[in-house]
Each structure stands twice: as structure tokens, then as C-alpha cells.
């Protein structure tokens, strides 16, 4: 039974160019922030060993390029994802407005078996910028969007200062596991069999 347990979790990070996808991934995996990231071309991934409820997983985090033009690559990268992390910049309305597109594009390209219940997590990044004074997307607005998409868990993060990054990825792991139907057979105690009410409320899920 143990051998049938899944150990690899695949997570895709999507969002507009420059919202901080690479930074979030690096902050989570390497606990580092650099001002000198380069624009991601194509896609990159990092892996991290994580423990969740006494089980060990390899989290494979795919960092994708934000420019729309690279989206035709999506098919290859999105396939087999267990969770999709959407990122926007709280200081950029456009990056927030584009969330719908990213979400839909993911569902089309990855074509998960149960699109209505596929786990997404939303991160509003760069809350540190200018002490919050340049912020244009309110927490309320972001939460309303999450509620309208079936209660997507939401975190406000700063990849630069490491705010909420660990918490967000804990939630991502938890949700990625919920997408694993086989798990229900073997690990019924860790699965919310009722389903559908992931992340009660819209502020986080843990």
C-alpha cells in the first residue's frame, strides 16, 4: 500500500510578467530574495522536499514565463499539475484583471478531469512595496474574486520580505493533495471526502 502512495506533487505558478513568480518560488525553496532576477524564458522548475501530515513529498514547482507569447508552451508544462498557483501584484490592477485569463487558459490547456474542483491558490504579492501606499487592489476585492471562483484560498505575500510565503506553500501542498483521487482509496483520513468546500472562507485554508 505504501508503495502506491504518491510522492511527487506538481505545482504550476502562473501570472503576469514581473509579478514575482520566480521570486516567490526562490523565497520558498531557497529562502532567498534577489533584486537581480532575470525574466523567465520558457519555464524553469525547482523541487523541494516537504513533509505534510507525516508524509514526505517532493514538491515540483514550475515557474513559467509571464509573457502571453510563451503560452503555447502551456500544454507541455501544465499537464499533470496537482495545483495551480495564480499570482498577481497588489500594485498592478492589470495583473489582477488578467487572473481570469490565466485561470481559464490553465483549465483549457491542462484539461484536468474535474475542472470545477481543480485546486487553485491565489497569491497577492509585493505587499511590501512602498509600505503599501502604492497598492491598487484591495484585499476585499481579491477575496471577492476568490469567492466567485469556488472559494480559492488567498494569501497576501511579500517574496522580498518572506511574508506569508511558507504559509501559502503549506496551503498549496494541502490543496495539491486534495486533487489526488487515488489518495482517497489509501489515505481516507487525510481527504475531505465531502469535497467542494476547500478553504472554508477565502482567507487561507489552513
Amino acid at each position: 500500500m505504501a508503495s502506491r502512495r504518491r510522492t511527487l506533487l506538481k505545482v504550476i505558478i502562473l501570472g503576469d510578467s514581473g509579478v514575482g513568480k520566480t521570486s516567490l518560488m526562490n523565497q520558498y525553496v531557497n529562502k532567498k530574495f534577489s533584486n537581480q532576477y532575470k525574466a523567465t524564458i520558457g519555464a524553469d522548475f525547482l523541487t523541494k522536499e516537504v513533509q505534510f501530515e507525516d508524509r514526505l513529498f517532493t514538491l515540483q514547482i514550475w515557474d513559467t514565463a509571464g509573457q502571453e507569447r510563451f503560452q503555447s508552451l502551456g500544454v507541455a508544462f501544465y499537464r499533470g499539475a496537482d495545483c495551480c498557483v495564480l499570482v498577481y501584484d497588489v500594485n498592478s490592477m492589470k495583473s489582477f484583471d488578467n487572473l481570469n485569463n490565466w485561470r481559464e487558459e490553465f483549465l483549457i490547456q491542462a484539461s484536468p478531469s474535474d475542472p470545477d474542483n481543480f485546486p487553485f491558490v491565489l497569491l497577492g504579492n509585493k505587499v511590501d512595496v512602498d509600505g503599501g501606499n502604492s497598492r491598487v487592489v484591495s484585499e476585499k476585492k481579491a477575496k471577492a474574486w476568490c469567492a466567485s471562483k469556488g472559494n480559492i484560498p488567498y494569501f497576501e505575500t511579500s517574496a522580498k520580505d518572506g511574508i506569508n510565503v511558507e504559509e501559502a506553500f503549506q496551503c498549496i501542498v494541502k490543496n495539491a493533495l486534495k486533487n489526488e483521487p487515488e489518495e482517497e482509496l489509501y489515505m481516507p483520513d487525510t481527504v475531505d471526502v465531502v469535497g467542494g468546500n476547500r478553504g472554508q472562507g477565502s482567507s487561507g485554508c489552513c
Partner: peptide
Amino acid sequence: RERKGLIDKDVVRTDRS
């Protein structure tokens, strides 16, 4: 605006070292 915005974001991420 979008094009310029994208370029603005990328030039500060190009060979800055």
C-alpha cells in the same frame, strides 16, 4: 502601455550584474 510596461520590467532584469 502594455508593451512599454513589459520592456520596463525586463530591462531592469537584464545583465544587471
